[in-house]
Each structure stands twice: as C-alpha cells, then as structure tokens.
C-alpha cells in the first residue's frame, strides 16, 4: 500500500470502516474456573488422533480441551499451580503434545513446559527457566527464547526442548545493552530472531551463532512498541508493531498496529501502513496477536478490532459481548479462527 510520507497510512482507510465477517462458531466456559487469563489453540494427540485442541489458562490452572461433534468441547486434562499464578500461555508453533506457560506476579518468574499423562503416569510440569524474566516467545523447531535482567546484566537465551519437555540445548544470545521488551520470529527465516527494546530499537540476532547482527532505531514517535511478527522479503524486513502507549488524538485516528519496512544492511526504516481505529472509536492497544496478514487487538475500550495489515484497514469490530469487555484475543494455531476471552472465563471462537 503506497503512502505519501513514511510512517503515515492512507488517511481515508481509517474513515471507511466496513464490518467484516466474524461468525461465532463456538463457546466454552469452564464452570470450575472463575476467571481466565489466556487461551491458545494447538494440535494435540488424543488417543492416537491429531486433534485441534484449545488450551485455557486461569490464575491457578491450565486446561486442555478436545473438540467434540457440533462444536462442543470436553476438558481432558488440567495442570494445577498452587504457588505462583499463570500469566500467559506460550505455545510453540510446530510442537504437538506440549505447551509452555509463564508464571509470575506482574513479571514472569518461571517458565514451565506442560505435558499430558502417558502410560498411567501423571501429567508433567517441567521447569525451564526462572528469575526476573522480561520476555518469552515460543519459536519453531521446539525452541523457546527468553530474556532476563535489564541493560548491562541482561541475559538472552534460546533453549531447545527435548521430547520429555526438558531443556536439550541452551544458547546464549549476545545481549543488546537495551532492555528487551518483546521477541518476534521472522517468517521464512528460522535462524533469525527479532526483539523490540525499551530504547525504541529493533534488534536482530543469528540464532545459530548467537550473534547480534543489527540494532535498528525506529524513531521516538511511539514508546514501548510490541513487535509481533516479521517477514523477510526482497532484502527487507517487514515488521508488525503495536503501540500500547500511542496517543488517542493522532490526526489519522488512534494508531494500534504499524507495519514498517527495515533494511538490515543500512539500518534505515520507513513506515508502510498504519492501522488506526475508525473515527469515533475510542481506545488504545491493550493486547493482541498477529497471524499472516491479519492483526487483532483488544482495545482499552473493551472492544476487539481486526485489521488487514496489507490494506491498513479495519476488517472487523467485535464489541463487548453479553455486557462484558474482552480481555484477550488470539489467532488459532490450527484453523482460521479467532479466540476471544473474557475475565469470567468465557471463550468465544469466531
């Protein structure tokens, strides 16, 4: 989508909102869980069959649900946590039968791998990492990236998980001397890893060698950007960022997601598309997820908004349902579904 100025999107795109096709196909709620903090959909082997399962997390339990006929769900296993609450689910993109979770109070204190029972044994929790963990991301090839500490005492590592859920191999990445906020994988480049930093940079590592390849300053217009995904194309990196701290009073509307193009050779970058809210729609980015060319976000207003990143245009809006604001939103790792959750534990599948 060509634009006149770097960093600015087509202004009319923000005005012309056309509701998209989000169709509710299923709902699930765990009667034993009073709240929910996260959801994920991934493949799991259930009785020898590869099933598209849903994983839900409330403060002190993570549950695995298998699909039944007619879009119903049956809980088949739960992992309980008694001491430290669950903060988020950390799925590993191409791994079946295992999911990771981050536990902590406000900041992540532990990362654990969860496995189902087998051969009469109990389900397993394997401690993978502990400490003051700033950021975590599940990567392809059974790898998990995490960072702990800040600035000079920062440690960035990638562990490869064994079949048993434990750590098989650990590699330290060269620290960027700027606090890592979020990681993003580069689609199509399994040996590259990106991170956004507290000093408004995007850093690039070589995962095979641990080398820090580049630090690209992306400007000070937006603080504490979250990087979600990156795509390598024709010598450029296209990076999807979201902006929890963006002002609501920008001329083109409230910016939520931004697609930038970065030349890793020259460290120059430019805006490609700005995804902002339709005029009159209040709110800032609270949390969200990106899959392919679709980005979804829960806004501070309690609404979920979906954009087509290639068009920089809102594709759908999902106002609070049953009088309750949305708390989190995730794209399914198994199908073209959007999973939206509410604090009371209700999960809606669109």
């Amino acid at each position: 989508s060509p634009v006149q100025q770097p960093g600015m999107a087509d202004a009319p795109a923000c005005d012309s909102f056309v509701p998209g096709d989000l169709r509710l196909v299923s709902r699930l709620k765990d009667p034993s869980a009073p709240c929910a903090v996260d959801v994920s959909a991934l493949w799991w082997d259930v009785a020898g069959l590869k099933e598209p399962c849903i994983v839900t997390a409330c403060e002190y339990a993570v549950s695995l649900w298998k699909p039944l006929d007619t879009w119903q769900w049956e809980k088949i296993y739960s992992w309980d946590f008694t001491e430290v609450p669950v903060l988020q689910i950390v799925p590993l993109p191409d791994v079946r039968d295992l999911v990771c979770v981050a536990l902590g109070n406000l900041e992540i204190q532990e990362i654990r791998a969860l496995l189902c029972p087998s051969d009469g044994e109990a389900g397993k929790q394997v401690l993978l990492s502990s400490g003051h963990i700033q950021a975590v991301l599940g990567l392809t090839k059974r790898r998990l990236a995490s960072s702990r500490g800040t600035l000079c005492d920062q440690q960035v590592e990638v562990v490869t998980l064994a079949e048993s859920g434990g750590s098989k191999e650990k590699r330290l990445l060269m620290p960027p001397e700027e606090t890592v906020l979020t990681f993003a994988e580069v689609q199509g480049m399994q040996d590259a890893l990106l991170a956004s930093t507290a000093a408004n940079s995007i850093v690039i590592w070589n995962l095979k060698t641990g080398q820090l390849l580049r630090k690209v300053h992306i400007g000070d217009s937006y603080q504490a950007s979250v990087c979600h995904k990156a795509y390598s194309e024709m010598g450029l990196l296209f990076v999807v960022l979201s902006h929890p701290c963006a002002k609501e009073s920008e001329p083109a509307g409230s910016p939520v997601f931004r697609l930038i193009a970065m030349n890793p050779k020259t460290t120059l970058s430019a805006g490609v598309a700005l995804c902002c809210l339709p005029r009159g729609q209040p709110g800032r980015f609270l949390e969200g997820d990106v899959k392919g060319n679709l980005a979804a976000a829960v806004l501070t207003s309690g609404t979920v908004a979906v954009w087509n990143l290639l068009l920089g245009r809102p594709a759908a809006l999902l106002p609070p349902a049953s009088g309750q604001s949305w708390s989190f939103v995730k794209w399914s790792g198994t199908h073209s579904h959007l999973l939206a959750g509410q604090k009371d534990g209700s999960i809606f599948v669109y």
Binding site: N206, L213, G235, N263, T266, S269, A270, V272
Partner: peptide
C-alpha cells in the same frame, strides 16, 4: 516507501551481516 528511502538492498543481508558481526 520506495527503495531509495532505505538505501542499497542486499538479498543476502543475513549471511553478510553474520560474516561481519563479532562472535
């Protein structure tokens, strides 16, 4: 954005940067 905004582009940037960066 046009390519001119971003300077010369290399399709092998990952390999080139890996050969230059300190280990």
């Amino acid at each position: 954005c046009s390519q001119a905004d971003l300077g010369p582009i290399s399709l092998n940037w990952f390999e080139e940067l890996s050969s230059e960066a300190p280990l």
